[in-house]
């Protein structure tokens, strides 16, 4: 017993004994287990109630708070004077603040992004020409997976100060086509065919009503404008599917999409030479 007692009270440096070191390790160990247990339960109970982004933020706050308390409580055991650290930390903080304005700016932008929430994880957006899915919104950067599968890290300051186009912020969106038909074709028949194709498609919404109308009498074609609203989850597949169906069905009904053409009038008769 006296050996263990002596070992535990053995001074490693200044007044810090082996028992202080062991206790510090124990506190860190317990705090790590506590963080894991709390986060696991948070995930279990809040997974269905909160979004991934909010849950991740709560987990980070909980983890850093517990870890911070643990570190502050073990520092005196390790012979480190907290008041000295706080003063040194304050001075270092000012110096670091000047040196890391961009980082702080990104950090604050991240906080404002989380408060204002113009974008959420999983949504599709365009920021400064970068288009894709929001994979993660971190404290200083936002991760975007572009449509062609690239990983793009955008600093939060850039996201916050740029104009953001969120493609899926609303439950529905509109897309449009311009379908050109020949002047010799029956435009009313073409309108009827396009309207019936839209009616047949389940995702082309009944309301807001689709619009199909002759928009322009162009150089080479009568231009029909087609505007359709669809749920954001499926709008692109509807857009692709319907355009091809319109083209095919119009052709099946003898209505063709014309090539650009010019009618030339010659002043004199043109002699056509035929090669044998």
């Amino acid at each position: 017993m006296s050996f263990i007692h002596k070992f535990l009270n053995f001074k490693l440096y200044s007044e810090v004994t082996v028992s202080d070191i062991l206790l510090s390790i124990l506190i860190l160990f317990i705090s790590t287990i506590l963080i894991k247990a709390i986060n696991l339960n948070l995930r279990r109970f809040l997974k269905d109630k909160l979004e991934k982004q909010e849950l991740s933020l709560i987990e980070k706050v909980v983890s850093y708070t517990i870890l911070g308390i643990a570190i502050i409580s073990i520092l005196p055991m390790l012979g480190i004077n907290i008041s000295g650290i706080l003063v040194a930390g304050g001075i270092a903080g000012i110096a670091l603040g000047f040196a890391s304005q961009k980082v702080v700016s990104n950090l604050l932008s991240g906080v404002f992004l989380m408060i204002e929430r113009p974008i959420r994880i999983g949504q599709q957006l365009d920021v400064e020409g970068i288009r894709g899915f929001v994979e993660d919104i971190n404290v200083i950067s936002t991760i975007i997976r572009t449509y062609d599968g690239l990983y793009v890290r955008v600093p939060n300051e850039k996201v916050f100060t740029s104009s953001i186009t969120n493609f899926v912020a609303h439950v529905v969106r509109r897309f449009e086509y311009t379908v050109g038909i020949r002047y010799s074709d029956d435009a009313e028949k073409a309108l009827r065919i396009i309207k019936s194709l839209i009616e047949e498609n389940p995702f082309a919404l009944k309301n807001p009503e689709p619009q199909v109308f002759v928009d322009n009498l162009g150089d080479n074609a009568v231009e029909i404008k087609v505007r359709i609203w669809a749920p954001v989850q499926v709008w692109y597949s509807v857009k692709m599917e319907l355009l091809w169906k319109i083209k095919k069905t119009l052709e099946e009904n003898g209505i063709e999409i014309p090539f650009p053409q010019r009618v030339l009038w010659f002043a004199n008769d043109v002699k056509i030479k035929k090669n044998k």
Binding site: V171, V172, P202, F203, K206, N207, W229, P231
Partner: peptide
């Protein structure tokens, strides 16, 4: 049955419904 969807409410805060 032939399926169709519609929007109930406005574009900003409405809901998509089976019609």
């Amino acid at each position: 049955i032939k399926n169709k969807f519609t929007l109930y409410g406005d574009i900003r805060s409405g809901v998509v419904c089976k019609y």
